[in-house]
Design a protein around this nucleic acid. Sequence first.
DNA 1: CCTCCTCGTGGAATCGATTACAAGGAGGAT
DNA 2: ATCCTCCTTGTAATCGATTCCACGAGGAGG
Lengths: 363, 363
Amino acid sequence: MASIKDVAAQAGVSVATVSRVLNSHPSVSPDARARVIAAVETLGYRPNAVARSLRTDQTRTLGLVISDVLNPYFTELARFVEEEARALGYSVIIGNADERPELQDHHVRTLLDRRIDGLLVSPADGRSPLTLDAARGGTPMVFVDRWVPGVDVPVVRADGREAVRDLVAHLHGLGHRRLAIIAGPAATTTGHERVEAFREALREHGLALPDAYIGQGDFQADSGRRATERFLSLPEPPEAVFAADNLMALGALDAIRARGLRVPDDIGFAAFDDIPWFVHTDPPITAIAQPTAELARAAVRALADLIEGRPPQSVTLPARLVVRRSCGEPHDEPHDEPRGESRGAPRGEPHADRGREQRRSTP
Amino acid sequence: MASIKDVAAQAGVSVATVSRVLNSHPSVSPDARARVIAAVETLGYRPNAVARSLRTDQTRTLGLVISDVLNPYFTELARFVEEEARALGYSVIIGNADERPELQDHHVRTLLDRRIDGLLVSPADGRSPLTLDAARGGTPMVFVDRWVPGVDVPVVRADGREAVRDLVAHLHGLGHRRLAIIAGPAATTTGHERVEAFREALREHGLALPDAYIGQGDFQADSGRRATERFLSLPEPPEAVFAADNLMALGALDAIRARGLRVPDDIGFAAFDDIPWFVHTDPPITAIAQPTAELARAAVRALADLIEGRPPQSVTLPARLVVRRSCGEPHDEPHDEPRGESRGAPRGEPHADRGREQRRSTP
DNA sequence: CCTCCTCGTGGAATCGATTACAAGGAGGAT
DNA sequence: ATCCTCCTTGTAATCGATTCCACGAGGAGG
């Protein structure tokens, strides 16, 4: 592969001049510039990013460590992160922790070894010392979605408290009283925050959240399945189950279906994180949607600010409840309402069924 | 951040010795080795991968350019690719082309600039000259899933021909005669191969595939929606629709639902690519499943072979039909069969509903 | 006791860029 | 004509590693 020396030789100038042309430094004569450009063209030269990074001590690369690529929420996040980063002139390297702390460490280490300019982390485990060392060691870092309390790192996340309150009001309004939750790992903020928000919302309705109604999950489908099986085996099983992420929701649905039960007739159901498929499940699933694109953009901007020496901003955006049919039919709608063509969604709507959905802001 | 010089100074040896210890070169005295290791420890030294890459001319990194991260099939592929690569001592950088040729070019260029050791590509557009130039330019490359004919690059892919034939037999057996397909872009191999397989299978049953029954999609949900709307507006709409990937399937379901039609009663439905959610849709969707993990592993191994100078192997694995209920109830099963606990799947089954599924190999 | 090998070690070149510094030439002001 | 600027250019140092080569010490063999 051609190097800068080859270009210099071909253009009859020194490597310094070639470099100046490449970096659009002003003091290069039009003649030299033209000759360099021609040489670059004929040789098909592309600067070696590795060498450049070594010299300039910057890679124009961001690391993104997410907890689980197979989780559509994180996939979407990753996609928007890359988009915004590209707009700001950065590349993104994704590390998938698979909800395993040691894998998270592996990726953080690898990314640090590659001297990425900054790190976007959604910690699978807040206790990993490696990540915190990196932050203290001066690596620009921003937490997305999940964070670690007590560390001086900007946080970009969604606040589901209001939406959870709306959800509980919705469930309560439909007559459900025994409400259970499948929680994420306690080592993650999203793991216990969602439980606390749920517990608090229940209290507002004079309801308790017994331990038996808290399933310990790990944000993976299997744990949702197991927790739900346990719920259903209880002498007094819950009337509605709330899964704290969409993968555990998948597992929970598996378990409910395996029992031969029907949602919402036999049991109400809702999930955190909204994904396109929730419109097409049987029945469509009531979910709490996060503003993923905005989160991604805010996180990248905060990280870029940190890297480029501007003051970064922590951001918290509200999640919102999207009501569908998995908790029961709303009272004000007839049960066997005809579904004609007239109900078709207008063009441009991302999902046709959204016409039936009700969005809640505050009750 | 500490460099190799700092370690050398701390250990009282030269940088050469430090480097030898780091690369476990045999001729280092036990004493020196111990001092270096201690120095590395106290300084928290980690070798700079950028500098190392510049010198050794290898990055131990693979590039993976996929057509769309939001497509669960590719996400899964990416996950397994990273897993296998990690096992072989490589990192992976993912580039998401979003089905846009110019974005694919952007990522290929960026990855090449970073001097990745090899490239795994699922071409969004076979006509992109950049990718082919790279292949001819000597960059180790392997095509996954999609490929470009007439280029000397190993291909790892699934062959859906048999499974499509099984699907058509299944549809025919359920009485469907007017069958339509939502195709992917003609510029991709998977785009036209699936149509050809479908057409051929229809011919075996004496059925034709009129142009009106071929929807031109682009592997994105929206195109599936539009194609399906067009099908349903036909004077003689198809009795069953086959979507060539899971995202177009999502769009197609949106369109069917918007019309107030029911699957499978009003229209039969099937899709290429099986995803976990297909078990929980209304109704569960009959799909053609690809052996994603095996494809990913084979692709990474082929690429590693190429990089490390061994002869690489092209691999083609069969896809297989997974029958659920979206094409109609199988004749030999009662329609309103009771769903008791006895039908629950055994523990350990990834998805509970699989108990109901029938796997076909050949009709 | 001398020679030859082996082993451990350090010096220095190298990878491909960027950039500080010096130097040469052109042009304007005096 | 001389001096001073400004503009352009090249030489060489540098980033942090790896690795070739040379050198000295020490042991084996003659």
